[in-house]
Amino acid sequence: MEGGAGMEGQPDAEPGAGQQLEHQRERAEDEWRLWQAGQVRSWLHLVSAVAQWVLLLACLIYLGVHFLRPSKTQSDKGLWTHIRYTGRSTRGAAVNLTAESGPIQIRNGSVLVPCDGLYLVSLRSGIYPDEEEEDWLKLTLQATSSVLWEQVVHSNDSRVNLTTVLYLFEQDSVTLWTSSNASLSDLSLSLVLVADNNS
């Protein structure tokens, strides 16, 4: 009888174990589905984040190009001149400069300052004193009534490289002089109004 009871109890245990296995399998499938859904969500979040960054970068590039590009009206208002010259200079005579570009006028080799203000001045050149004269000379940038800048140039160190800001007055005539005859090579002179008296 005990054996029979044991035999009768055994079939009862098998369905319980089967249900437990079925339950574990369903739980594993649920966990797998949840994991897959989490993976899909993570992937969608990643794609969304990348798309947002790309869009933000495109907006920043557009704004940067838009604001860094000077508008036509701004460039038309700016006062500047750019001069290039290669040739001779004569002692006691201003170098005969002519404008290559820019709205500031050049008259008789002189830059005419259009208004009071701060000007960015850039001057670069190779200067070669005549051999029969001294092996050095003075290069002078002069306004109507005052010397703005002066440099001694030696034949063995003939490059001039000046970048400075000067306050210039309306109706000043800016000229370039050498203290002796010389050859000027690839001279480049630029004046740009940085701030006028009204700003």
Score class of each variant (00 low, 15 high):
residue 158 S to P: 10
residue 150 E to N: 15
residue 160 V to W: 07
residue 74 Q to I: 01
residue 96 N to P: 12
residue 88 R to A: 08
residue 99 A to T: 11
residue 128 Y to Q: 08
residue 120 L to I: 02
residue 118 L to A: 09
residue 131 E to N: 05
residue 164 T to N: 15
residue 162 L to S: 13
residue 89 S to Y: 02
residue 77 K to Q: 14
residue 106 I to R: 03
residue 144 T to F: 03
residue 151 Q to H: 12
residue 116 D to W: 01
residue 158 S to V: 01
residue 91 R to T: 04
residue 74 Q to N: 10
residue 124 R to D: 09
residue 155 S to Y: 05
residue 157 D to W: 01
residue 130 D to F: 06
residue 74 Q to D: 14
residue 145 S to E: 15
residue 96 N to E: 09
residue 71 S to K: 10
residue 120 L to Q: 14
residue 84 R to T: 14
residue 87 G to A: 10
residue 120 L to K: 13
residue 124 R to C: 05
residue 82 H to T: 03
residue 79 L to P: 00
residue 141 L to N: 11
residue 76 D to G: 03
residue 98 T to E: 14
residue 98 T to A: 15
residue 69 R to K: 13
residue 130 D to C: 07
residue 126 G to M: 01
residue 151 Q to S: 10
residue 117 G to W: 02
residue 120 L to V: 03
residue 155 S to Q: 10
residue 150 E to S: 15
residue 151 Q to Y: 03
residue 115 C to I: 02
residue 145 S to G: 13
residue 115 C to H: 02
residue 159 R to F: 07
residue 135 D to K: 14
residue 122 S to D: 13
residue 71 S to H: 07
residue 133 E to H: 11
residue 103 P to M: 03
residue 91 R to P: 01
residue 99 A to M: 01
residue 164 T to L: 12
residue 105 Q to M: 08
residue 159 R to W: 06
residue 124 R to T: 11
residue 152 V to P: 00
residue 107 R to D: 03
residue 108 N to R: 09
residue 100 E to F: 05
residue 95 V to P: 00
residue 164 T to Y: 06
residue 148 L to S: 11
residue 147 V to K: 10
residue 141 L to W: 07
residue 120 L to M: 07
residue 152 V to R: 13
residue 123 L to H: 08
residue 102 G to H: 04
residue 110 S to L: 02
residue 76 D to F: 05
residue 159 R to N: 12
residue 85 Y to K: 11
residue 121 V to Y: 01
residue 121 V to C: 06
residue 100 E to P: 00
residue 154 H to I: 06
residue 143 A to E: 15
residue 143 A to G: 13
residue 73 T to W: 08
residue 117 G to M: 05
residue 89 S to H: 04
residue 125 S to E: 07
residue 101 S to A: 13
residue 88 R to Y: 06
residue 116 D to A: 03
residue 137 L to R: 07
residue 125 S to N: 12
residue 109 G to D: 10
residue 156 N to P: 00
residue 87 G to D: 14
residue 105 Q to V: 11
residue 112 L to M: 13
residue 142 Q to K: 15
residue 110 S to V: 01
residue 155 S to E: 06
residue 154 H to D: 13
residue 113 V to T: 08
residue 155 S to I: 04
residue 118 L to T: 10
residue 120 L to R: 14
residue 117 G to V: 04
residue 129 P to D: 11
residue 74 Q to G: 04
residue 103 P to Y: 06
residue 102 G to T: 04
residue 132 E to V: 02
residue 147 V to D: 15
residue 124 R to M: 04
residue 112 L to V: 12
residue 131 E to A: 09
residue 118 L to N: 09
residue 102 G to L: 02
residue 140 T to M: 08
residue 96 N to A: 10
residue 129 P to M: 02
residue 72 K to I: 01
residue 110 S to R: 05
residue 82 H to Y: 03
residue 164 T to Q: 15
residue 83 I to T: 11
residue 118 L to Y: 08
residue 113 V to G: 00
residue 94 A to M: 07
residue 88 R to M: 01
residue 83 I to M: 07
residue 82 H to M: 00
residue 133 E to W: 03
residue 146 S to T: 14
residue 110 S to T: 09
residue 141 L to Y: 13
residue 133 E to M: 05
residue 136 W to M: 10
residue 83 I to Y: 05
residue 73 T to S: 11
residue 112 L to C: 08
residue 76 D to H: 06
residue 153 V to H: 09
residue 107 R to H: 02
residue 95 V to N: 02
residue 106 I to P: 00
residue 99 A to C: 09
residue 122 S to G: 08
residue 160 V to K: 09
residue 104 I to N: 00
residue 111 V to C: 04
residue 99 A to K: 15
residue 129 P to G: 12
residue 104 I to L: 04
